[in-house]
Simulated scan of single mutants.
Amino acid sequence: MSGLDMLGPMETNPPAHSKGRELTQTAIEAIVNLVPAVGSTITVLLMAGLNHKLNQRRERWLTELAEAVEELSRSLDGFDPDALVDNDAFVDAVMTATQTVFRTSQQDKIEVLRNAVLNSAMPGAPDLDIQQLFFDLIDRLTPTHMRLLALLNDPPGWFDRHPELTRPTFSLSSNRVQLISAALPDLGAQGQAIIERFFAPLADGGLVNGSIHGMMTAAGAWQPMTTDHASAFLAFIRDPR
């Protein structure tokens, strides 16, 4: 059984049914059925177009997920893709992640969802309740939130992984706003108020300790400020391949 077969059938249009043909056919059906108002016909066309787009998004997501499962099976001894259909945690993860995929076009978030689904089937995966908490976080947080969390979990490692960035030079007393601005230039360019807006959900969600405003030594600014829950979440969304 291939990875794609494992994930079940997908709703795809045969080659003859292009998007244009599908929309045209829908319009003809509306006319034949004597739809009374132009607005109603437009609504039918809009819904047909949205349905087509969502089906495309679903097909692309499941195809890429199946490819990732197949790649993982080649790199991880003992990983059996055929057993995944009987793995309740994996099935739950696929269904939960797919709902979020329908609501986002952000590729960074889709990649995080894929990683989380793969990790749900790994040995030592969190229990189902914790996994649900993690999927809720993925749904609520933006890619910027998750990048900020990864930075605050390991500031030196962030700069090691991004050599194009310039490490900030701290004075005797510093705060993490300067660190964040250097590590995430696009976020830093929007100013301190926006940085605070992205930081607040992390603090409210119990993912970080402390404040980004507190004055500290230069050495202190480089220390992680994430909680154990955040570290486990970041491990869950890391690519296992």
Rank of each mutant, 00 (worst) to 15 (best):
D127H: 04
T226I: 02
A218Y: 02
W222N: 08
D139G: 10
L179D: 08
T100P: 08
Q131G: 03
S173K: 14
R103V: 04
L45F: 06
M10I: 06
N175H: 03
I237G: 08
A232H: 12
Q131M: 03
E196R: 13
R147Y: 00
L72D: 06
E196A: 06
F199A: 15
E196T: 07
D129S: 06
G205N: 04
V32C: 06
M95G: 11
E29D: 15
L148F: 06
T26H: 13
Q25K: 12
N51L: 12
E59C: 11
D86T: 04
A219L: 09
P14S: 11
L151P: 08
T96E: 06
V117Y: 10
I180P: 07
K109S: 01
H52R: 15
P9W: 04
A37E: 13
N33M: 02
H229W: 04
D86S: 04
L179M: 11
D139T: 11
I180G: 11
M10A: 11
F199S: 14
L23G: 08
M146D: 15
D139P: 12
P126R: 01
M216N: 07
E29P: 02
M47E: 14
A218G: 08
P81H: 03
L137I: 02
A16K: 09
T100W: 00
D108E: 15
S181K: 14
A232Q: 14
L151V: 06
G8P: 03
L50V: 15
R161I: 06
V44H: 09
I130E: 12
L23P: 09
D5L: 06
A183S: 10
N13G: 11
R21S: 14
H17E: 15
Q131E: 06
D92I: 05
R74A: 11
F135W: 02
A200T: 08
Q106Y: 01
Q190K: 10
I195T: 09
Q131F: 00
M225T: 08
L141P: 07
R114V: 02
L62C: 00
F102W: 10
D139K: 14
E22D: 12
G157A: 05
T144R: 14
I212W: 01
G49N: 14
R238H: 07
E64V: 03
T41H: 12
G191I: 00
H213P: 09
Q132A: 04
K19C: 09
V177F: 11
S18H: 10
